[in-house]
């Protein structure tokens, strides 16, 4: 009898935790949507921030800034990551796998666990210090490093998942080795690699810590990629800890926009995965 009661209680608790997590997500998202919608206006998307004390204005520079930063990071991180993935996949299929590739795999694993703030100060020391100013370049450098392990690992795994027969079919057509890798094998692995890239992009879109001392933020349009640039998460942070009510409202609006962008990217990545499965 006692055993039965314990069984029932534990099962109840297990079910409860499932319900609880849905509930938590609901209140967090609920607040963002409610507060966000009530603070959102057209101005938010087309106006620059107003000076302190003035009501109104928007975050158009930060929205654009975020896209610029993510684009720049993707631009360098995707080629390096995918090619590194090709290298790793290649070396594991060759007769004697090199020690270098095991070391690299291990280091990438290590990198994926390094807190993003640490990546931020690394980018600061390597790029901001020598250039003597905060810049979009430094911000994208930091974000790109955060993407690197995810991209490399998915590229490697997706390439390894391409059946041998595909490679053989291509070689049997007299297609060069490198063209086989680039146009046939990578093409076959493309949906999976794309999903990995999008997951990494969704993550860096919301990253704040690595941008604090690199991109730094900007209340105006950025003048060049070699100067400070605004980013949506940075702006949300700055406004959230400010003492002004109007800025708090804008922070909520920014949060809603940011989360919609992030969820949209996650949604697209899931769609791609399902389409090709």
């Amino acid at each position: 009898m006692k055993r039965k009661i314990i069984d029932k209680i534990m099962q109840f608790l297990i079910y409860t935790s499932g319900v609880l997590v849905c509930f938590v997500l609901l209140i967090i998202l609920g607040y963002i949507v409610l507060k966000g919608i009530s603070s959102l206006s057209l101005d938010f998307f087309i106006r620059l921030p107003k000076p302190v004390g003035e009501v109104g204005g928007g975050m158009v520079n930060a929205i654009v800034g975020s896209f610029v930063l993510v684009l720049l990071s993707t631009l360098w991180s995707v080629p390096i990551g995918v090619l590194s993935g090709v290298y790793l996949a290649e070396s594991s299929s060759s007769a004697k796998p090199s020690n270098f590739s095991s070391v690299l795999r291990f280091l990438l694993d290590v990198l994926s666990g390094v807190p993003s703030i640490v990546i931020g100060i690394f980018a600061y020391s390597l790029i901001v210090l020598p250039m003597k100013k905060f810049s979009a370049i430094a911000g994208s450098f930091a974000l790109g490093i955060i993407m690197l392990p995810t991209i490399t690992r998915t590229a490697e795994e997706m390439i390894k998942m391409v059946p041998r027969s595909i490679k053989e079919a291509s070689l049997a057509l007299g297609i060069n080795y490198w063209k086989t890798m680039f146009f046939i094998i990578l093409n076959t692995a493309k949906p999976g690699i794309l999903t990995g890239i999008l997951i990494a992009v969704a993550r860096i879109f919301g990253e704040t810590a690595p941008l604090l001392f690199t991109a730094f933020g900007n209340r105006f349009w950025h003048r060049s990629l070699f100067g400070p640039i605004a980013a949506l998460p940075l702006q949300i942070f700055a406004y959230a800890i400010s003492p002004y009510d109007d800025w708090h409202k804008q922070a909520w609006a920014g949060a809603l926009v940011l989360i919609l962008i992030v969820y949209m990217i996650i949604f697209i990545s899931r769609k791609i995965l399902l389409k090709y499965r």
Binding site: S165, I184, Y276
Partner: peptide, 9 residues
């Protein structure tokens, strides 16, 4: 080849 292997993408 033994198994039909068209390029899937």
């Amino acid at each position: 080849f033994q198994q039909p292997n068209p390029f899937p993408t």
